[in-house]
Design a protein around this nucleic acid. Structure first.
Lengths: 348, 348
DNA sequence: GTGAAAGCGCTAACAA
DNA sequence: TTGTTAGCGCTTTCAC
C-alpha cells in the first residue's frame, strides 16, 4: 500500500525529478532512463497519487454536478451524458443530489467547492431560493446551469428551447384539429415550469387555439393522474388536447383519462415532454417533445471550458431546439397518416 | 480565490497551528483565540482545502462507485440510495459508468484508485471478465459488490436473495393455477442472469410446475417484445405464466402478448423483477419482485466500513430477501382476492 | 539532460 | 495552551 515516486526513482537509480519527467513523458529524458523508470514503475506496481498531483497542480480533474434528484429519469439521462462527455477528456464526475431542497443544494455546493472541483454543472432546484448559493459558487469556479436555472441570468445556462418545443406541440395538436387545449404542468418554483407554461401560452395564441386555465402541480405520475381526474370532473368543458410539462405527467394523465372512459387519442390528444425512459414504455406510446440531452451535455461541458472566473463576460444562454416525436397519443393531422417514429436511443 | 489557513492565522494574529485547532475544534484553544480565528475566517471567506487535507490525512472522504449504466433505472435507484447513505457520514460519491464494458470498467477502477477513494462500491458488468480488475482493486482498498458480482467469491457482496425471489414468483403463479411456466431473462454473462435462472429452475422443481426451456436475451424492453413474439410463434406450447429477469423485459413481453391477442393476466400471468420506476407506470401495473434497494445500499455502506484490506477475512455475502408485489399482470390465487398493492416510494 | 530543493495547504508531533 | 516545523506525494523551477 503506497509505493510513491520516490520508491520508483530509487529502484531505477535516478532522482525523483527524472522519474517524474519520465513518467509524465512531458519532458526530455534519455531513452535509457525512460526505460529504467517505466520498468521500475511496472515492477513496483506504482500508481500516481492524484491527490498529491491535484494539490501541486491546483486542479483536480474533477467536475462537480448537482441535480435535484437522480430518481428522475430526465436528470439521470443528463448525468449519463455529462459523464460520457467528461470521460473524453479524462475528467471524473463528482455527483450530488439536492433532493429538490435548496438548503441541501447549498451544502453540497460547499463541499464540492472544498474538494476543489475544476468546474460545476448544476440544475438548481429553485428559481429563487437557489440564487445566492449558485451565484457564490459561480464566483469561485466555472459554473454552468443545465435545464433549470436561477432567475436573473447571473450564470451561464444551456437547456431546451421551450418556446420552440411548445410551438411544435401546440402546432401539432392544432393541426390534428384541436380547438381547445389545456396545459398540465408543475407549480412555478423552477424555471422549466415557468418557461414551459409561458411558451405554451404564446404558442396557443399564435396557433389560434383556445387555451383553458392551466393545471399546475408536480412533475410526477401521481399529479398526472390527479389532473386527469380533475379534467373528467367537469366533463362538459373537456379540451380537445392536453400538453404536459413532462412525460410522467402525461403517462398518468393518459391512464386516468382512459380509466374514465376517454379514448386517447380519439377523444383527446396528449403530448408529453422529455422523451426519456418512460415514453416508449407506456401504452400507447407517447407523443412527446424529445429533449436534446446529448447535445445539452456536450454544450454544457464545452461552455465550462470557456468560462473564466477571473474575467467574467456576459452570461451565455444556449437554448437548443428540440424535436417533436409523434407516436400514438395524438390524433393524426387532418390529411391523415401521422405514424409513430421509433426512438434512436435504447434505454441502456 | 485561495485564502488559506495561513491568511486566517495572520489576520487573527495567531499561528497556523492555533488556527487549525480552532477551526477543527478538535483541540483546546482559549475562547478568545477561537473567537478571533472564526471571525477572521468568516471575514476572509476562508474555505478549507479538502485536497490538502486529504493528502495530509491519507483519506479523501470519497467513495467510488461503478455501475454498468446510469441509464438503467435499477442502478440509478441503487446509486441514489448509496449517495443518500454516504451523505449521512459526510462522504461524497465519485460516480462512474462502465457502459457494460469490462475494459472501461477496469480503466475507471484505475482512476478511482488513483484518486485515492476510501472505498469502492461496484456492480461488475461481467462475471468473468471483471474478475482481475475487481480483485486487484479489492487488494488496495475496501470494496463491496452490490447486485452483480464476480465469480469465485473473492470479494464481499450484497444483493437480493434470488432463490427467495424466484420461489415467491413461481409460487405465486403456481397458486394462481399455472402448470407450465417459462423464464425469460438475460444471457448468462453476469451473476444476476445466472442466479435468477437457477433460482427459477429450483423453484419450479419445488413447486411442481413444468418449466419450459428458458428464453435468454438482454435485460431490455426490446428483448421482452421479441420474447413475446417468440412465444406467440409456437402458440400451441404457450405456458400459463412467464417469470421475467427484470421489469423491462416484462413490460415488453406484456405488450407483445397483448398485441398478439393474448390477454394478461386472463390467458397468461407475467411477473417482473426489480420494481423500480417502470412497474407502476405500465398498463396494467406489473406484478413484480421488489428489490430491497434501500436496504442493499445501507448494507453495502455498512460493510464497506468493516472491510480491512490489511487483514482480509473470508468474503461476506449478504443476500437480502425481497418481497413479491402483486399487481395486475398475474391471475389471482384460486381462492380469489389478490389485489394490487400500492408502491410506498414515489418516482421522485 | 539531470538532480536538489521548494512548495502546493493542511495537521500533528514536538517544544516551549 | 501556543508556536515551530516536518512532511503527506507530486511537479517544476533553478542550477549544474
Amino acid at each position: 500500500m503506497g509505493v510513491t515516486i520516490h520508491d520508483v526513482a530509487r529502484a531505477a537509480g535516478v532522482s525523483v525529478a527524472s522519474a517524474s519527467r519520465a513518467l509524465s513523458g512531458r519532458r526530455k529524458v534519455t531513452p535509457e532512463i525512460a526505460e529504467r523508470v517505466s520498468r521500475a514503475a511496472a515492477e513496483l506496481g506504482y500508481q500516481p497519487n492524484a491527490v498529491a498531483k491535484a494539490l501541486r497542480d491546483r486542479t483536480t480533474g474533477t467536475i462537480g454536478m448537482i441535480v435535484p434528484g437522480i430518481g428522475n429519469p430526465f436528470f439521470t439521462t443528463i448525468v449519463e451524458a455529462v459523464e460520457h462527455q467528461l470521460q473524453e477528456t479524462g475528467r471524473d464526475l463528482l455527483l450530488c443530489a439536492s433532493q429538490y431542497r435548496p438548503d441541501v443544494e447549498a451544502r453540497r455546493l460547499e463541499t464540492l467547492l472544498a474538494r476543489r472541483v475544476d468546474g460545476l454543472i448544476i440544475s438548481p432546484c429553485d428559481i429563487e431560493a437557489s440564487v445566492p448559493a449558485v451565484l457564490n459558487a459561480a464566483r469561485r469556479v466555472p459554473l454552468v446551469q443545465v435545464d433549470r436555472h436561477i432567475e436573473g441570468g447571473g450564470a451561464d445556462w444551456v437547456g431546451v428551447d421551450d418556446d420552440s418545443a411548445l410551438a411544435q406541440a401546440v402546432g401539432h395538436v392544432a393541426a390534428g384539429g384541436a380547438r381547445t387545449v389545456t396545459f398540465v404542468g408543475s407549480r412555478l418554483m423552477n424555471s422549466s415550469a415557468r418557461s414551459r407554461l409561458s411558451g405554451f401560452e404564446r404558442a396557443a395564441a399564435r396557433a389560434g387555439v383556445n387555451a383553458t386555465a392551466p393545471l399546475l402541480g408536480e412533475f410526477t405520475l401521481e399529479w398526472g393522474i390527479e389532473a386527469g381526474r380533475l379534467l373528467l370532473l367537469d366533463g362538459e368543458t373537456m379540451p380537445d388536447a392536453v400538453v404536459c410539462g413532462n412525460d410522467e405527467i402525461a403517462v398518468g394523465l393518459v391512464r386516468a383519462l382512459r380509466a374514465g372512459g376517454v379514448r386517447v387519442p380519439d377523444d383527446m390528444s396528449v403530448v408529453g415532454f422529455d422523451d426519456v425512459g418512460h415514453a416508449t414504455m407506456c401504452d400507447p406510446p407517447l407523443t412527446t417533445v424529445r429533449q436534446p440531452v446529448e447535445e445539452m451535455a456536450a454544450e454544457a461541458v464545452r461552455l465550462l471550458g470557456q468560462v473564466r472566473v477571473s474575467d467574467p463576460r456576459p452570461a451565455q444562454r444556449i437554448a437548443i431546439a428540440p424535436r417533436l416525436v409523434v407516436r400514438e397519443t395524438s390524433r393524426p393531422v387532418a390529411a391523415g397518416g401521422a405514424n409513430g417514429t421509433e426512438m434512436g436511443r435504447g434505454t441502456a
